[in-house]
Amino acid sequence: MKRVLPLQLGRSVLVIFFAFPIVFMLISSFKPDAQIFADLTSLKAILPVGDISLDNYRGVFDRVPAERLLLNSVGISLVTVALGILINSMAAFALARMRWRGRRVVLAAIIATLIVPFETFALPLVWWVNKLPWLEVHGFHLTLTSGWLDTYHVQILPFVANAFSIYLFFQYFSSIPVELDEAARMDGAGWFGIYRRVVMPLSGPAIATVAILTFLPAWNSYLWPLMVVQSEDLRPVMVGIQYFFQLNVSWGQIMAYASMITVPVLVLFVAFQRAFIGSIASAGVKG
């Protein structure tokens, strides 16, 4: 029993250490600039006291097209997650439950890509996407354009297929009994029917893991959109930060914007805490 007290004490000090900056950000987002600095010298820094208002949030909307940035990020993240679940699970299904030639080579090649960080080919990728063609639809007119810079799809398509997602689905699908496939086949189901009605409905946890692991980097992406998207209308939230360091810097507004783009993720995290931590831990057992 005597060891519990110092342990709990140590853990509590660490809680303060990890929570303090984030709490400070949330609290400061409601305070005027002058008060943020004045409160720094005391515990008031993390207490919602004094001149509390939503002024900073109003200021954010005046300074940047915040609703546009948020909408862009929501759209880009959701489409990336949805396409990622579909395409990666289909590939994993074909690899885990079907027999076809070249299957093992494809699986080995996909796993081999896991060790290469995005940063090694990000710059050549910028050059490359600037050369890619795209079909634009205007009513009944199709126009072939070239160059993907400054579009939504350049922020989505490179991140849809993901070797790690395929690997996670592959592992999960391999644990589902194959007898279920046979039973479905007796009932006249084809391969796609087995995928859609048998395997996918049983794969909730794998789908949740892939959704979380796709959503976080999509929402948080910074380096890539910084390089490939120039127009304000198409930019995601993280790149929007730049606007706050032009002209007069208002830390109250920065804290408000930072809170706006962080709180949704933190709420999701707290609500699905187990799934988040489990998903991210699953990234650790791949070795």
């Binding site: 395409i87 074909a94 050059w127 297929a161 391969w191």
Partner: peptide, 27 residues
């Protein structure tokens, strides 16, 4: 089975080729 298997894997394989293999080779 080969045909359907390859078809189901192909969207992911094509995307990985275009957005991973090509840029790595380009590097």
């Amino acid at each position: 089975e080969t045909l359907i298997g390859a078809a189901m894997a192909s969207p992911a394989v094509i995307l990985l080729a275009v957005f991973f293999l090509v840029p790595v080779a380009l590097a």
